[in-house]
């Protein structure tokens, strides 16, 4: 356990040195805050954009506060995921290429703790950044529109954080399987995109699909709806399947690192 914390501290130091501790939270905060602001000024933006015939009247209903928060979540779901995947880019493939992984792993360090320490540091950073950004979105929504209840916000934040964690884990897995950091980022994002498109477009029931999580998070913001998705049980099923998939991905990347600790 002590060894694990040493590795974790090393990862955290790396996060500080590469300035990820600065740009990832700021990226999320700017994304989260600009969504309510853009929604609030949308009528003015449209009015000044021109191309409107004289006397055209645009009526945009004031969106519900939870819809604004859901808009922020969909921003996080696109650009936020990209930022998280980029921040985990080269996490393992870089260490394999530079030979650091091989050098650490000749010592009596378990492959599992090497991988999980990296994973924990990456996910901690991603979750903290997301919390900061979601907090900003909440504050701006409350000041420009109306407040959204604690319970709904926390529930949706937990669901979305799980989705972010899933994509971060995928980025780590692909980073240990593929040589190129860019290919690893692309692989993780493409998998996430396929799962999430499948969950929203395929006609059959998919309670197992982790791609549902971002949609569930957006739905659970709506206090008026009975319960998100197809009931509480289906939500728990998604959560359990996602957690299992994350564990399997960690095991797979530890295994691949054991088989090939360096590129040559």
């Amino acid at each position: 356990m002590k060894q694990w914390f040493v590795l974790f501290n090393k990862e955290w130091l790396e996060i500080l040195r590469s300035y990820r501790i600065i740009w990832l939270p700021i990226g999320f905060i700017v994304l989260g805050a600009s969504q309510p602001i853009a929604t609030f000024f949308m009528p003015d933006i449209l009015a000044s954009a021109g191309n409107m015939p004289e006397g055209a009247v645009i009526r945009i209903p004031t969106p519900q506060p939870f819809e604004v928060m859901a808009g922020a979540l969909s921003q996080f779901g696109v650009i936020g995921l990209l930022l998280v995947a980029l921040s985990g880019m080269g996490a393992i493939s870089g260490e394999k290429a530079s030979g650091t992984a091989a050098m650490v792993l000749v010592k009596p360090v378990s492959h599992v703790s090497f991988v999980t320490a990296k994973w924990a540091a990456l996910l901690l950073l991603a979750v903290l950044s997301f919390a900061a950004g979601y907090g900003a979105a909440w504050y701006y929504t409350a000041s420009l529109f109306d407040s959204v209840g604690w319970g709904e916000v926390v529930q949706s934040a937990l669901l979305f954080a799980l989705w972010l964690g899933f994509v971060g884990t995928l980025a780590l897995l692909f980073s240990s399987l593929l040589r190129s950091a860019a290919a690893a980022t692309f692989g993780a994002l493409a998998t996430a995109a396929v799962l999430s498109i499948a969950s929203s477009s395929l006609p059959f029931e998919q309670s197992w699909n982790p791609g549902r999580l971002s949609g569930l998070a957006a739905e659970s913001l709506n206090a008026g709806a009975a319960s998100p998705g197809d009931g509480q049980g289906a939500v728990w099923l998604t959560v359990i399947v996602t957690a299992t998939a994350m564990l399997a991905a960690l095991a797979a990347s530890a295994r691949s690192l054991k088989r090939m600790p360096s590129n040559d």
């Binding site: 300035y19 600065i22 740009w23 700021i26 905060i29 700017v30 805050a33 600009s34 602001i37 701006y140 000041s143 420009l144």
Partner: peptide, 20 residues
């Protein structure tokens, strides 16, 4: 002043990023 109190924090955060 409400307007400023909303926009200024966002600008400051972005300026920090640019400065760093």
């Amino acid at each position: 002043s409400q307007w400023i109190s909303l926009i200024v924090p966002l600008l400051i955060v972005q300026l920090i990023l640019i400065a760093v």
